[in-house]
Design a protein around this nucleic acid. Structure first.
Length: 85
DNA sequence: CCTGAGCGC
């Protein structure tokens, strides 16, 4: 399950985020979104977990908890913005 | 920045 993680502190990198979610289960990929042009973190990212139960567990346990000074907000990711609609 | 990412030599 792909999870959307918002309100990520700039001090958090993908490795730290992955380690955090790995405490609940296997993560297949972690992505922190950075601005294409400025290279700065947008403050949100995505964590793809192999097991849906672990994903929901992580979503529940990590939502609104302080991580590096910011309260994480975890929810199910939506499909990436499509150009076609 | 609460929903990303790769179109060039």
């Amino acid at each position: 399950m792909n999870l959307f993680v918002a309100n990520i502190s700039p001090t958090v990198n993908e490795g730290a985020l992955k380690a955090l979610f790995e405490t609940f289960g296997k993560t297949s990929s972690v992505k922190i979104v950075v601005d294409k042009y400025t290279g700065e973190s947008k403050g949100f990212g995505f964590v793809d977990m192999l097991d849906d139960r672990d994903a929901m567990e992580a979503m529940d346990k990590l939502s609104n908890v302080s991580f590096f000074g910011k309260n994480l907000v975890v929810s199910k990711a939506r499909p990436k913005t499509s150009s076609i609609l």
